[in-house]
């Protein structure tokens, strides 16, 4: 099957690329469970960073630290430091809501609001007062849908329920919803896990597209996907960040034997 998707040329991140997110010594505990152990990583701006690793290794946990979504879990406790643009996001003076407007998130299972397609996207700009008036709001909605590659499919049915779309369309709707508030960072937790190869291909295309303007962190279980869309890859295992580097290096000559085993499918 031709997915009409040739692998993108992997431009290694030039050394002068600015670091967008910097984590140092991050530990996460769920009650007594030590889910993430001393993770330190630098995530470059306007590039795609892929997190890979076996199930339960803490990829989602780390991702959810970046927009403080773990705050909603009562038993979760976090130590260490995460900076975005050099600003500590865990300082008490920081407003979580503003942070989440800057760091959008797309979830593993598409979760559109049970409202109209238009409302789904308009909601974020509306609560943040991004649009001055109705026409501007419509522009944002249409623009976001276009960038998410969904506009052509839904332009006649913007008043239909978001949940009436197919799974892949719903996921692109969620991406459109995330970019409508013009975040700087988009976190994607296995965005294609519920999708067929064609829908996945569309999303991958979209990610490549979005990389021009956003910093993207993506969790994926598909090595091919990581290889196709990301410039840098981080491998997690048992709560530890085992190895991080340019995607080409990780996939062609990983430094760690565990990474090698995982990539070649010997465990995981």
């Amino acid at each position: 099957m031709d997915l009409s998707l040739s692998p993108i040329a992997h431009v290694d991140v030039p050394p002068d690329t600015r670091t967008k997110i910097r984590a140092s010594g991050v530990n996460v505990f769920y009650g007594d469970k030590h889910a993430l152990k001393d993770v330190s990583i630098a995530i470059p701006e306007k590039a795609v960073m892929a997190f890979i690793g076996p199930s339960g290794c803490g990829k989602s946990t780390f991702l959810r630290c970046i927009n403080r979504m773990n705050d909603t879990i009562d038993i979760a406790r976090i130590t260490g430091n995460i900076d975005i643009d050099g600003q500590d996001i865990y300082t008490p003076s920081l407003d979580v809501v503003q942070l989440r407007a800057r760091v959008g998130m797309v979830f593993q299972k598409p979760n559109p609001f049970p409202k109209s397609i238009f409302e789904n996207i308009a909601y974020g700009p509306r609560i943040h007062g991004i649009a001055k008036d109705k026409t501007e709001l419509e522009e944002i909605v249409v623009g976001s849908l276009k960038r998410a590659g969904l506009f052509e499919e839904v332009k006649d049915r913007l008043d239909d329920s978001g949940t009436s779309l197919s799974g892949g369309q719903q996921q692109r709707l969620c991406i459109a919803r995330a970019i409508a508030v013009s975040p700087e960072i988009i976190l994607m937790d296995e965005p294609c896990s519920a999708l067929d190869p064609i829908a996945s291909a569309k999303i991958e295309e979209l990610i490549t597209e979005l990389r021009q303007n956003f910093t993207i962190v993506i969790v994926t279980h598909s090595m091919q996907q990581a290889a196709r869309v990301s410039q840098r890859t981080a491998f997690f295992h048992l709560g530890i960040l085992v190895e991080e580097g340019a995607t080409d290096d990780i996939f062609t000559n990983p430094r760690e034997p565990r990474t090698q085993d995982y990539i070649t499918g010997r465990f995981g």
Partner: peptide, 23 residues
């Protein structure tokens, strides 16, 4: 109410209260 709705709202930067009252 499925937690994914709540997370979706929080994810686009709704406050806790907004997520609850709007969604």
């Amino acid at each position: 109410v499925p937690p994914s709705i709540r997370e979706g709202a929080l994810g686009v930067g709704a406050s806790h209260q907004q997520a609850i009252f709007h969604h």
